[in-house]
Design a protein around this nucleic acid. Sequence first.
DNA 1: ACCTATTGTCACAGGTTTGTCACAGGCTTA
DNA 2: TAAGCCTGTGACAAACCTGTGACAATAGGT
Lengths: 216, 216
Amino acid sequence: MFTVRRAGYEAIMASDALSTLRRWQEDDPGLILLDINLPGTTQLKDGFAICQHIRSQSDVPIILLTVRGEENDIVRGLEAGADDYILKPFSPRQLVARIQAVLRRGRSGESASLSSRLSIAELDFNPKLREVSLASGQTKSLTSLESRLLESLMLNTGHILTTDDLISDVWGASGGNSEMLRQLVRRLRTKIEDDPTKPFYIQNVPGLGYAFRLKR
Amino acid sequence: MFTVRRAGYEAIMASDALSTLRRWQEDDPGLILLDINLPGTTQLKDGFAICQHIRSQSDVPIILLTVRGEENDIVRGLEAGADDYILKPFSPRQLVARIQAVLRRGRSGESASLSSRLSIAELDFNPKLREVSLASGQTKSLTSLESRLLESLMLNTGHILTTDDLISDVWGASGGNSEMLRQLVRRLRTKIEDDPTKPFYIQNVPGLGYAFRLKR
DNA sequence: ACCTATTGTCACAGGTTTGTCACAGGCTTA
DNA sequence: TAAGCCTGTGACAAACCTGTGACAATAGGT
């Protein structure tokens, strides 16, 4: 709260589900920081439901706050229409940076549709520009296949995608085979992994496929 | 009750069968802790009947509380549609952990259908990830055949599966033989049994087959 | 047409998983 | 007691999966 104000933004705060919705309708904020674990919420009105509800009626940017390690939360949150999320605990600087990023993007007129940006842990991936920013700070540009693969994986962070799933995601129903996928994984790894020899993000699940993993 | 509240959940309580059903319909809770030995229940409305009734109308997660040693209860409970159960007496930490696990699973969007997760006593098996968490806390990953075997066994906890049943469950109609099954059982045991020399979970039934047993 | 980046294909190495064989001990039955 | 069956066990081989390097084919821009 202090952090946000200090960065020059106006901030209002709601502490439970109902008042969140009320203040949203009354004040029409330019951006919403939404804590998944809002107190006083029944199952019917948890953070995701609120997110979805707001999104169904407005394009206001939503940033989710979630506790570290709840990988499923993130996937659900993005599916529910959130624009970005931040893992708690977070540094004030990170929070402000994300807010600015989301606002900048919103202003630039890019549609806030799915896959406009995926920011998972240290990896910041922009499918549209086909660019990833790594933890180290450097930015790599991906080829279109690499980009599609990474998008598939990140959209399903923490879930296993079978080889066939990935093949049809990347190459479509007709083309592609497991050999090509292996090569593609390899090439993507050399770009985004710290040490491609010991891949972290793109994890192989023997006999099944691959999964995108979060840093913890 | 205190434990649950302390963990940050909202809790309501019902002390007999009828009020349980009433409160369930009125409050639509996100999770139900159901004591099998509910007082004031006639035979027609025992814990299982309640469980079954609720399950028939809702996907709300249900955790059963049962007194230690009543193995039949557990099997019946799982058959009646419960998601998990906890043996009394239980530690507060365990209770909270189970609640969170069940909620997390439910939230993750995986259909609560068959084989989404099997949590029997100390063994927590996720067929999708092919992972088991042991009592000791460590997690082992299974091969695909091991996983299929364990799934078959756990889905029929307390019941005997003949050798032929298991073979066709694991290898399908065509392939597989008893020799391969013995090897597979052996390999699975070394992974999940405390002391593979004296197997507990996977019990041999001479002349018939194998059965998955619960801890007492 | 030419150059470069991207994508597809091949062959191989290492590890893991699965199948097979041989043997030992226990239990039942004649 | 001996024979026969069933189960558990160890060792080994075959099959499979994954990662890797090199190279050919293709596409896209100039």
